[in-house]
Computed example of a mutant assay.
Amino acid sequence: MKITAAVARQAHQDFSIEQVELDEPKDHEVLVRIEGVGLCHTDLVARDRLIPIPLPAVLGHEGAGVVEKIGKAVTKVAVGDHVLMSFNSCGECPRCKEHLPPYCTQFPQLNYVGARPDGSSTLKQNDQAVSGYFFGQSSFASHALANERNIVKVAQDLPIEILGPLGCGLQTGAGGVMRSLACPQGSTIAIFGGGPVGLAAVMGAVIQQCATIILVEPMASRRELALELGAHHVIDPAQGNITEHIRNILPQGVDFAFESSGRGEVVEAALASLGSHGLLGLVGVPPSVETTLNVNLVSLITFGHRIHGIIEGDSDLDTFLPELIQHYQAGKFPFDKLIKKYALSEINQAIQDQAQGRCIKAVLIPEHAHH
């Protein structure tokens, strides 16, 4: 079928709105009419070739919408259901069997290749293949094909157009604190970076009832929002040594640190702020593939520090996403405060606004969804 999509044609260049041809759903696939899709840093990382998906490509991996068609083997959803989409996983490997699909051994092949695992293309333009199937969806478009494994059915009375970011950025931040680090009640945490992931981590820390929640973030507006969301302290990294600031608040250091910027020097400051047996969770995408870390082995071994690379907040979609939605309905996960809506055709403006801090989380609304 003919669909409208935002196409990435060249690294570091604007997306263009174009018509492309979307394949019919195969056995376990679901055709979703997109009502809203989050704009995530990972989409730009893919456009700019840090994730080597071939261009031209339709990216987008925080989609939500309405099921329009299902493959003949699909049992999880029916036509007309409201769904949110997330990452794809195989369901068969040891990690998937442990309910840890973000660590699926097939993760790169199922999410970053630009085609189905069998090599067939989901998107074409004038008989030329266009990379699709990004995170098993490619939802910067009016419609997307997903698998039943990477969609979750949601209640129809929820604001479907803003739910998409739960499928990546928000579950990464909240799940990072609630599941990967599993911060116990009364523990202390420093969160580095106050974008959507860092602010979702703040909300997750509030849900976990952490006793001290510190956010390190350069933008004043984001520090203010963090306090509103329940952070106890905010630190502007421009105001001197971050680690000293944290140790002024907690002389013993923090039990947990959560790093969402991906910058080496910030990761090192996070490590230095840990207390004894402290655990550092890393979710930030580094600026380049060559980014390395200077770790002082003596302090690591002396204090028993631990470092945990986190993917998608350890979320197993079918239980964790409904849990986050329940918290949202109860007023305990007010992620809607982070969101600003744009038309899909305004994607380049949204990218600029997000980069300059004019909005925290952009959600793109395809034209057909403007009610």
Score class of each variant (00 low, 15 high):
81 D>C: 10
81 D>Q: 03
82 H>P: 07
83 V>E: 05
84 L>Y: 06
84 L>W: 07
85 M>S: 06
87 F>C: 04
88 N>I: 00
89 S>L: 03
92 E>P: 06
94 P>A: 07
94 P>W: 11
95 R>V: 01
95 R>C: 11
97 K>S: 14
98 E>L: 13
99 H>M: 12
100 L>W: 12
100 L>E: 15
100 L>M: 15
102 P>I: 02
103 Y>D: 09
104 C>H: 07
105 T>N: 11
107 F>A: 13
108 P>R: 13
109 Q>E: 12
110 L>N: 14
111 N>H: 11
112 Y>S: 10
114 G>I: 08
116 R>G: 02
117 P>I: 11
121 S>A: 14
122 T>F: 07
124 K>R: 13
124 K>H: 14
126 N>Q: 15
128 Q>R: 12
128 Q>S: 09
132 G>I: 00
138 S>G: 01
138 S>E: 01
139 S>N: 03
139 S>K: 03
141 A>Y: 01
141 A>L: 00
144 A>M: 05
145 L>V: 00
146 A>P: 01
148 E>G: 00
148 E>H: 01
150 N>L: 00
151 I>R: 03
152 V>R: 04
152 V>G: 03
154 V>S: 03
156 Q>M: 04
156 Q>C: 07
159 P>W: 12
160 I>P: 05
162 I>C: 10
169 G>R: 04
170 L>G: 03
172 T>S: 13
173 G>L: 09
176 G>M: 09
179 R>C: 05
179 R>A: 10
179 R>V: 14
183 C>M: 14
184 P>H: 09
186 G>H: 02
188 T>S: 13
189 I>G: 01
